[in-house]
Amino acid sequence: MADTTALVLFFTLTGVLNERFIAGMDWQEVGLARLIGTPLMIITARPYGLWRDLVMATSGEAIFGRPKALLFDTLALLSFQVPIYAAIIWMGGASGAGLLWGIVGAAVIMIFCGRPYGLWLEIVRRWYGVGQPHKERSGRFA
């Protein structure tokens, strides 16, 4: 439930902003994309949380000498969410240049939101009283 709450709140806001102001979708298309996106976010929130935990847990000292939470939160988000988002806005009516700019916009948003979303996810998990598995296993992430 924590992963779902975090994902739906965070990415509904960023999705609306991207769809309307970057992809140039009209409000009806934005509404349709959100109607399509919300159930998909609900379905994919926990798998993404597990994916992020795996990426964060395997990103440690053996690779870079010390963990790089900013980099790995960003990579986890880009690799999991951008393809899903592309499908959402395509089904919502984006096409051609609008679809391309929407995907590029989402990738840029994911680059800037990777770590903030990772921190937000950890905050929401604490509100729900659940731990962060990657922290519990390794104790290395801040």
Rank of each mutant, 00 (worst) to 15 (best):
M1D: 13
D3Q: 12
L7F: 11
L9T: 10
L9D: 01
F10G: 00
T12W: 09
V16C: 07
V16R: 02
L17G: 06
N18M: 13
A23P: 02
A23H: 09
D26G: 14
Q28P: 00
G37L: 05
T38F: 14
T38I: 15
L40W: 14
I42E: 07
I43E: 01
I43A: 15
R46Y: 13
Y48A: 07
L50Y: 08
R52L: 11
V55Y: 10
A57C: 06
A57F: 08
A62D: 03
I63T: 02
I63V: 12
G65R: 12
G65L: 08
L70K: 11
T74M: 11
A76W: 01
L78W: 10
S79D: 00
Q81L: 14
A86S: 06
A86C: 03
A87N: 00
W90L: 08
G92S: 06
G92D: 05
G96Y: 06
A97Y: 01
L99E: 03
W101A: 05
I103F: 01
G105L: 05
A106C: 11
A107H: 09
V108S: 03
I111V: 15
G114A: 04
G114D: 03
P116V: 01
Y117H: 08
G118P: 05
G118L: 05
G118K: 08
L121S: 11
E122N: 13
R125F: 02
W127I: 05
Y128K: 13
R137E: 13
S138F: 08
F141K: 13
F141D: 05
A142E: 11
